[in-house]
């Protein structure tokens, strides 16, 4: 029983890390007022680039870096269209998803089914990893886990809510006209945070193929990008909210694995539906049950609206 609990929690941390990282990236983009619906495509691109990189040079860190850069380049293309040209964000996001899924499948055609030659190994933290259940799950993992669950959200939270720069960033997402009048570089802030967020989405894809599913196949991302987008809403656009909801959904995913491994009398197809159905329930139920949630969890006021200085 203890083994089962430990295994479930370990899987949850890994599966959730992918979602948490992508969701954190999207939090950054949406806080400056840009909805990037291309996460699914960017993750796919990151996943395949990571595999291709480690096949060439078997260093997982290089793979993760390449995946991040691939995501960031895709993000720059998206940011050019949505922030500089100011085209419709929904359309450009869908286009990036199509492009990312299509390109990664074309590029990865020769790599389909090739197992990743290098993955992140476990680095147990002495002492802590000996704790029952939570020890192996939280302190016996690979190094990027700490980056995803502690360092990155901590950094994002500190910058966002405890620095002047963070105030500027949030102002751009809430009221770009006022931010502009105060002398803040609206376009630059939006462009770079969208790029950074897309880089994290690429990294999330790379993290997936370098740890948890170490083999490329078409359709590998399987809606994780869209779940990450939903988690941003559920997380109330907060960095640690994104991390925690990522972990929660990792648990739901792990649960469906446990069900399959232990032959629960439910068809695997239905267990596989759990993360999707769970996400839908989690974004609908809170606003229905508790109306004040709508204000606490409200989206940045200028989310999805392109900013034109000359149009009031």
């Amino acid at each position: 029983m203890i083994d089962l609990l430990t295994g479930t929690l370990s899987t949850a941390v890994l599966a959730g890390g992918v979602l948490a990282l992508a969701a954190l990236g999207e939090v950054l983009a949406e806080r400056v007022g840009v909805t990037n619906l291309g996460v699914e495509g960017l993750m796919s691109l990151g996943a395949v680039i990571a595999i291709i990189t480690v096949v060439a040079t078997p260093d997982p860190w290089l793979g993760l870096l390449a995946a991040t850069l691939a995501g960031a380049v895709g993000g720059m293309v998206f940011a050019f269209a949505t922030v500089i040209v100011r085209a419709n964000q929904v359309l450009c996001g869908l286009a990036v998803t199509f492009l990312g899924l299509g390109l990664s499948a074309s590029v990865g055609h020769d790599y389909a089914g090739v197992p990743s030659p290098a993955t992140f190994g476990r680095v147990p933290i002495p002492g802590l990893s000996a704790l029952p259940v939570i020890g192996p799950a939280f302190f016996g993992q690979n190094l990027p886990v700490y980056l995803i669950y502690l360092v990155l959200p901590g950094l994002a939270h500190w910058v966002m809510f405890h620095t002047r720069h963070g105030l500027a960033m949030r102002a751009v997402g809430e009221n770009p006209a006022a931010a502009d009048a105060a002398g803040l570089p609206v376009t630059a802030l939006r462009f770079w945070y969208v790029t950074l967020g897309a880089g994290l989405a690429g990294a999330a894809g790379g993290y997936l193929t370098l740890t948890y599913v170490p083999v490329w196949s078409e359709g590998l991302i399987a809606g994780r990008g869209w779940i990450a987008l939903a988690l941003v809403i559920f997380a109330g656009y907060r960095p640690f909210g994104a991390t925690l909801s990522g972990l929660l959904f990792g648990l739901i995913t792990a649960l469906s694995f446990v069900g399959q491994a232990r032959n629960w009398p439910i068809a695997p197809a239905f267990l596989n539906m759990l993360p999707y159905l769970g996400t839908i329930a989690f974004i609908i139920v809170p606003v229905v049950v508790w109306h004040r949630m709508r204000r606490i969890m409200a989206a940045p006021a200028a989310l999805g609206v392109p900013y034109h200085r000359d149009v009031r």
């Binding site: 419709n88 869908l94 286009a95 299509g102």
Partner: peptide
Amino acid sequence: QLTASAVLAITGLVLFMIAIADEL
């Protein structure tokens, strides 16, 4: 010898260009 996914990428490109053209 082009994969089915190439069509998805081409569609994405068309959509992307149209989104930009609509604004320009």
